[in-house]
Design a protein around this nucleic acid. Structure first.
Lengths: 188, 188
DNA sequence: CGGACAGGATACCGATCGGTTTCCGCCTGG
DNA sequence: CCAGGCGGAAACCGATCGGTATCCTGTCCG
């Protein structure tokens, strides 16, 4: 029962994540439910509105997204290596043919409304990534950890957007850029 | 006659530029024409489709956009100063309350279709900016002008997107970042 | 003064939007 | 075996989508 219900919800959120990512937030409820094999009736029993579905589908992506990018705590590398490793994984992911950029940044850009429930989710993800950068910057002895973290976010989001839009290929570009910024900040 | 016709077209494209920028590309033709004080009849005499209106409205913005960012050729500054000045003007523009990021990058993100006529226009603008960076990098003696130009585009688009989404304030952030990259590249 | 044309207003087209409701079949527990 | 409820299918709601066609007024030119 709990499994069945979760399964319906899971199918819906998985399809939502994929369609919102591929086609943008303007995708219709009809197409969404058809693709998920879920009736609109069930969708509106699980969620109050399409906006809530979007927010939940983004929230659902967070664990996999962070697990892909952020190194495990057991990783014995230096802060510098952890940061560079994250950007390497970003570059690896960006070469996949259906890569469309960071889904959270895309949601923030498409929904221009910062009050939208999905915007709140997306902002949280960005803040957590920036906090990770800041922690690593502190551990690495950066001169200004907050500045370095903000610079790395600039590079991260710029690279995501440009690679996602198909106007940049990121072949070592971010690692070269991040290396220069790490050097300039005195991060070990 | 030519003036009248141009005036209708101008009103339409001005309203289109503003509405597409503020509300996104999903804004309807009805609302667009209402805001422009132009009938749909006239719009469809001037343009084949809404997509063409979007592309034309983006194209129309190019001169003002480039004039705002790119320094005049009479400017006697060094390449480094020209690049830094461009980012200073970006930061100045980003503090305006209705700033929503680079309209060309936003269009590329929202229209996920690279074949869309407006995507072509937006890509051209990005390529021209990158070419400007590359020229300045060459003049400044950068070790790898193409690499530096791509790095600057990363910073430019990352900063536009983040400031436009309201998750970054850019208070000297880009100039600090660009300075580090210019230094690392050996640009005078 | 008259006629031609531009262009705004508006109705209309089929399709889709987000969201609600009805119906009915299937599965489960008693 | 039967009662109840979950949930899929689909009709339905008013609104809007992109796009077309009709109408009618205002303007300009001969």
């Amino acid at each position: 029962m709990a499994t069945d219900k979760a399964s319906t919800k899971d199918r819906l959120l998985d399809a939502a994540a994929e369609l919102f990512y591929r086609d943008g937030v303007s995708i219709g409820v009809e197409a969404l439910c058809r693709s998920a094999g879920v009736s609109k009736r069930s969708m509106y029993q699980l969620f109050a509105s399409k906006d809530e579905v979007l927010a939940a589908s983004l929230e659902r992506r967070i664990p996999a997204y962070e697990a892909l990018l952020v190194p495990a705590v057991t990783d014995a590398a230096t802060p510098r290596e952890r940061i560079l490793g994250l950007f390497e994984r970003l570059e690896q992911g960006s070469v996949e043919p259906d890569y469309r950029g960071c889904p959270f940044l895309a949601a923030l850009v498409e929904l221009k409304d910062p009050e939208h429930p999905a915007s709140t989710v997306a902002r949280t993800v960005k803040e957590r990534l920036q906090a990770f950068f800041r922690e690593q910057a502190e551990q690495g002895g950066a001169r200004d950890p907050e500045l370095l973290a903000r610079q790395l976010m600039l590079v991260f989001d710029g690279a995501s957007a440009r690679a996602g839009a198909g106007i940049e290929t990121l072949d070592g570009l971010t690692t070269a850029t991040v290396t220069a910024l790490l050097d300039a900040s005195g991060t070990k």
